[in-house]
Write a protein that binds this DNA or RNA. Structure first.
Length: 586
DNA sequence: TGATCCATATCTCGCTTTGA
DNA sequence: TCAAAGCGAGATATGGATCA
């Protein structure tokens, strides 16, 4: 899937505006024709790229990755290739032949991911932030998790490791893992962590003004970035060494560890507020409890696997104020152990590219007000102000920005459910373009709004937009965002017949009923000569009746829960060759 | 009183963008 | 990589209001 999301836009022009601060919009030229204009533009583009490289230094970064993993220049876009090459190098050293890359036809079973939960939504004060460092890589190294080491039956020098269900935490499988640290995955994982930590240590010991510093820092960044992306490669179904049992074991071990910590916290009277994969937010009563947590991890690991571990919690700091909107969505102020204060916005509209500027600003203001301990009434007052402000905003500020990730015709136009397929309206941004009679390239940025009534409309020039659907715009820009926050605060609960808007003094006018045109008198249906209802076990029926007339009968068949009236007589003759299903269809 | 309209709820699917 | 949120939208069920 290509969403082209790291940067706002990827055209040379857009990048040079962002990187070099160029503001002048260039004239559209025809690149399909050779001309002086074309030539001048190409030269200017190359000059821009040279300028950008001076600033961004992508070439040394890619060159570093290339040398370190022995990949080719042209392979730089294959993120997985760096890991793949490290794996092959290690295999060659060990004289091991690795399998080929699997293809789509090979299938490949999915594994379950991480444990995550927002235990307590709403506002919190003075809660600790903890991070489980290097969890997956250390689990691989310490438990020798590798496809070659995983057995279904007990073997020599093996330990049993359970795989649990992600949701229920019940054991669903047990594997015997041979404790052979010379397997490929543990070796590569070890190399990654070793090199990363080596350069981290060196970096911290080197004078930032010395000539070596830059090289050391670069190397640290390289190993760090490969270490971080390694899990994505190992868990990829098309990775040559992918094995769902191994990946299931890796994620399950960490889930198990976190479930254990959850229980221990509860016993001690601490509250776990939030957990996501390897990060936890704990009401630690304002004290760093990482030492205690790390002792617990050692005890658990020892008891469970008879080993010690390098997996440990890092104390990130204290959230002086924190608002948990939902899982993967929160805002807070984190006081780091070094005393610095950091504003954190995680997953909220504030961060999303497809949110409107007005939405981002309003969400930030509301959350900040609530974090400053405002009352429900004060929050409502702010929303009322926002409901007024929205009307005076520039259209771009309240419109949704978006990009096509593929050609408009490649978006799905039907949905499948079971054996049935249904027609589907085009994806909303595709509709918006069509309604506005605009075309955009894949990856090109544009905006759209709702016009009367609920009609999405794309635009380049905001003056072309008339008849904005204000009710819908308020809903998307304000109400939807406020509702989840109010729900988290328990200021609002969904109830039948109650409208959220009424909290803010707004009412939706009831649409006047459509005046029905006089209908022609109904035709009286042809009366069946003999009408009866049969509630049957269809297959049993079919066995009992050799030839049946289903004419004029109402079937109420429990098998497919369908009732049908057949008006035309039809005789099904005895036909022993015919399978039941074909009768059923007829 | 039955038929019809409408709002609402619930489920499912497609898609994007985020988190870790 | 998996998992989640958010949004749009279709299918389907349900209950109340209104109409004929």
């Amino acid at each position: 899937k290509m969403t082209l999301n790291r940067k706002r836009e990827y055209s040379v022009e857009a990048r040079s505006i962002e990187v070099l601060g160029k503001s002048q919009k260039l004239k559209e030229i025809n690149f399909g024709e050779l001309s002086v204009e074309h030539r001048t533009r190409c030269i200017a583009d190359v000059k821009d790229m040279v300028e950008m490289e001076k600033k961004l230094q992508y070439i040394p970064l890619l060159d570093g990755l290339r040398r370190l993993s022995k990949t080719k220049w042209e392979d730089y876009t294959y993120v997985s290739r760096y890991i793949d090459q490290l794996l092959l190098t290690e295999a060659r050293n060990k004289k091991i032949i690795l399998p080929m890359k699997p293809t789509k036809e090979d299938g490949g079973k999915d594994f379950e991911g991480a444990f995550r939960e927002a235990f307590h939504r709403g506002r919190h004060f003075n809660v600790g932030c903890y991070d489980l460092a290097g969890a997956y890589l250390n689990a691989i190294i310490e438990l020798c998790l590798d496809p070659a080491n995983v057995y279904e039956e007990e073997v020599e020098n093996s330990i049993p490791i359970e795989v649990t269900d992600r949701v229920s935490n019940k054991v669903i499988a047990t594997y015997y893992v041979k404790q052979n640290p010379e397997a490929i995955l543990p070796l590569v994982a070890k190399k990654l962590l070793f090199e990363k930590n080596k350069f981290k240590k060196l970096k911290n010991e080197t004078d930032p003004n010395s000539s070596d510093y830059k090289i050391i820092e670069e190397n640290y960044k390289l190993w760090k970035s490969i270490s971080l992306s390694s899990w994505g490669v190992i868990g990829n179904k098309y990775f040559r060494y992918y094995d769902y049992r191994t990946t299931s074991l890796i994620t399950s071990v960490i889930r198990g560890l976190l479930h254990f910590i959850e229980g221990e916290l509860l016993k001690k009277g601490y509250t776990l507020e939030y957990l996501d994969t390897d990060g936890a937010i704990i009401d630690d009563k304002g004290k760093d409890i990482s030492d205690w947590l790390n002792t617990l991890i050692q005890e658990w690991f020892q008891k469970k696997f008879g080993k010690s571990t390098k997996i440990l919690f890092d104390y990130e700091g204290n959230y002086e104020k924190l608002f948990i909107v939902a899982l993967t969505r929160y805002r807070g102020w984190l006081r780091r152990p070094d005393g610095t204060l950091e504003e954190k916005n995680v997953g909220l509209e504030i961060k999303r590219k497809d949110s409107t500027e007005f939405m981002k600003q309003s969400q930030k203001e509301l959350l900040e007000l609530i974090l400053n301990k405002c009352s429900k009434e004060e929050a409502i007052e702010l929303i009322k102000i926002k409901l007024e402000e929205i009307k005076n905003q520039p259209l771009k500020a309240i419109s949704f920005s978006c990009k096509l990730s593929k050609k408009p015709e490649d978006y799905a136009t039907e949905i499948k459910r079971g054996n049935k397929t249904f027609k589907k309206k085009p994806y909303i941004i595709v509709s918006a373009l069509k309604n506005a009679n605009l075309t955009k390239k894949v990856g090109e940025l544009f905006w759209w709004v709702y016009c009367d009534e609920r009609i999405p409309m794309a635009f380049d020039d905001e003056t072309t937009i008339k008849n904005v659907d204000w009710a819908k715009m308020k809903e998307r820009n304000i109400y939807n965002k406020v509702r989840v926050i109010f729900e988290a605060m328990e200021w609002w609960k969904k109830e039948r017949g109650k409208k959220f808007l009424e909290l803010f003094g707004e009412f939706i006018e009831k649409k006047p009923r459509k005046v029905k045109s006089k209908k022609p008198p109904k035709e009286t249906p042809k009366k069946a000569t003999e009408e009866k209802t049969i509630v049957c076990d269809f297959e049993q029926c079919m066995k009992n009746l050799k030839g049946i007339c289903i004419a004029t009968e109402v079937w109420n068949c429990p098998k497919n829960n369908e009732s049908s009236v057949y008006e035309e007589p039809e005789l099904l003759k005895k036909d022993n060759e015919k399978p039941i299903e074909s009768y059923y269809e007829e």
